[in-house]
Nucleic acid binder design. Structure first.
Lengths: 148, 148
DNA sequence: TAATTTCCTACTACATTAGTAGCATATTAC
DNA sequence: GTAATATGCTACTAATGTAGTAGGAAATTA
């Protein structure tokens, strides 16, 4: 029933690139500092995200990462499913047991499906643009005199 | 994002006791066989469930376990929360970080809360009576010529 | 060519999960 | 009372997953 730290870092990293909204590549170092993630771990995660087609990389000096997807349509769900794998709460319980089925198998199968669907729905309804909007609104409203 | 095997076994064990709907205590051996759980592990789980007030035990010959709660009002959620602990998908992200908050913290906090709420709702809406009804209906409808 | 930055494999420490094993203790049928 | 059955308790273990570290190769650009 957990979203792993790595997965949460992946979401944070994408959010950080998206919020900067620049054509300049964002360095892992900047992402790591802004979101308090270890530099090395950030590299690993961004590399994975690249293979998943979420970001693209620029090597060399002034290199870094750019979003490969539009943050207005990229949903939280896609990232979670890629990094964490199957989002299902009870993957093995959903398999068909055939003749070896026990009393309750069908009922539990339906229950876990309902849970999965509801989680999926929530995560699929949130884009990174939504997250950024929410965060900005919250910060304006609640900490109007917060200076950096 | 997983419901542990142990937790699933706990739900199965309660379902098995509830479906028998008898004033006779159900032996761990019978529960273990019916639901294909190791005898020893079943004992451990039932003991935990007893401490949680879900079942009560009878010792000695003809001993075993009985439901301590009405299966019409006992929900899946209560059992999951007791056995697996906090149902939250990202417990540490929900804590208040105070001044150390990063961009996105509030947005993610809200996201995880929404996920938690939807999972909670689904699990709180299912009682063991519901599960038994569903299973019985399913079995009547789909395998009418299934003989044991 | 030097500096910067990504890219890639391998290794490790720790926590959790899913059990096992052995024996002590309680209860009841006979 | 005693035999049979069942719970109660502690401790141990194997496998898996999580959260990183470490070292260096390769690419790019000023």
């Amino acid at each position: 029933m957990k979203i792993s730290k790595k997965c949460q870092y992946a979401l944070k990293a994408i959010l950080e690139i998206a919020r900067r909204n620049t054509s300049q590549a964002v360095k892992t170092h900047d992402i790591a500092c802004s979101q308090r993630i270890s530099q090395r771990f950030t590299e690993i995660i961004l590399n994975e995200l690249k293979h998943g087609g979420f970001v693209e990389s620029r090597r060399g000096n002034e290199g870094g990462y750019l979003l490969a997807r539009d943050h207005k349509t990229l949903t939280v769900r896609e990232v979670i499913e890629y990094i964490q794998g199957d989002i299902s709460v009870a993957p093995e319980a959903l398999k068909d047991n055939g003749d070896a089925s026990l009393f309750g198998d069908e009922a539990f199968k339906k229950l876990w499906q309902e849970v999965n669907n509801s989680v999926s729905e929530v995560c699929a309804s949130k884009t990174f643009a939504d997250l950024i909007d929410f965060e900005n609104t919250k910060r304006e409203k609640c900490v109007p005199n917060y200076n950096i």
